[in-house]
Design a protein around this nucleic acid. Structure first.
Lengths: 138, 138
DNA sequence: CGGTATCCTTGGAGATACTG
DNA sequence: CAGTATCTCCAAGGATACCG
């Protein structure tokens, strides 16, 4: 029985994808859960910005995260804190000071997001071309 | 001047993130665009399912993508086709037959998604624990 | 400074019915 | 079979105002 390297790679990938999808029926799918919580604009942008700047304060983060409203920053930060991706440290001072930072878990997600970002940059032009071709062909 | 390996790695990461975020100001941010188009439940699920099953027909895909409505499957498929991630082949038969398949571009995104899925599986328990801890502490 | 609380709008998405 | 076309509803999220 002969199997080429390409075929083996493909089978290996297939297996991985199957594993990701399989729990779907049983109620909770890890990737589904992942998507709901982290695969949205603000969560990703906040994680990327925190990863870039390290520890930072509420308003600094708001400044850097272009377009986010105060409400959405608060909501997003709370959700990420709840999931253990960021830490929140409150200093008992006046005026108050609060510092946010990625946890170890958050940093590991940052690595994955970086890959996504790189994919996006790398294929941006290709996607643009595809869109134009699509619109011409109708 | 001494720089540890860890420091160098960190600086390298920071640079990459900066690159992803930088175009933000200038109007179009690749990652933002990416998020809008692909970082949603249905797009990701459809890509994963197409990656798993290879070429497949509309209703077959609908069956496998648990919970998706006919409308959302159509909408999602069109969007992915527009972006050049999947191909759509119509056969002039009665009853009609349409086959969807990931393009090369789509397959490259699949790899990134697989990584996300693996991250989600690997850290699922940790996230659950963090959530419980968060709710106890209030 | 770093948030809540409230109101209000919009569009994402389900349900249903129809069609080439 | 593989879609459109409508109607509808709900909740994500912006704007604004207030608070410890």
């Amino acid at each position: 029985m002969e199997v080429t390297i390409a075929e083996r790679q493909h089978l290996n990938k297939r297996k991985k994808i199957g594993k990701i999808l399989e729990e779907k029926g049983s109620g909770i799918c890890p990737i589904h859960d992942f998507l709901i919580h982290f695969a949205n604009k603000w969560s990703m942008l906040v994680i990327l910005n925190l990863g870039f700047s390290g520890k930072s304060r509420f308003n600094a983060l708001k400044q850097r995260t272009t377009g986010i409203s105060q409400r959405m920053l608060t909501v997003t930060l709370r959700a990420l804190e709840e999931d253990g991706l960021i830490s929140r440290k409150v200093f008992a001072e006046i005026p108050p000071r609060v510092e946010y930072e990625l946890t170890t878990l958050g940093k590991s997600l940052l690595d994955v997001m970086t890959l996504m970002g790189e994919w996006a940059s790398r294929h941006e032009a290709e996607i643009q071309r595809a869109r134009k071709a699509f619109h011409k062909g109708r």
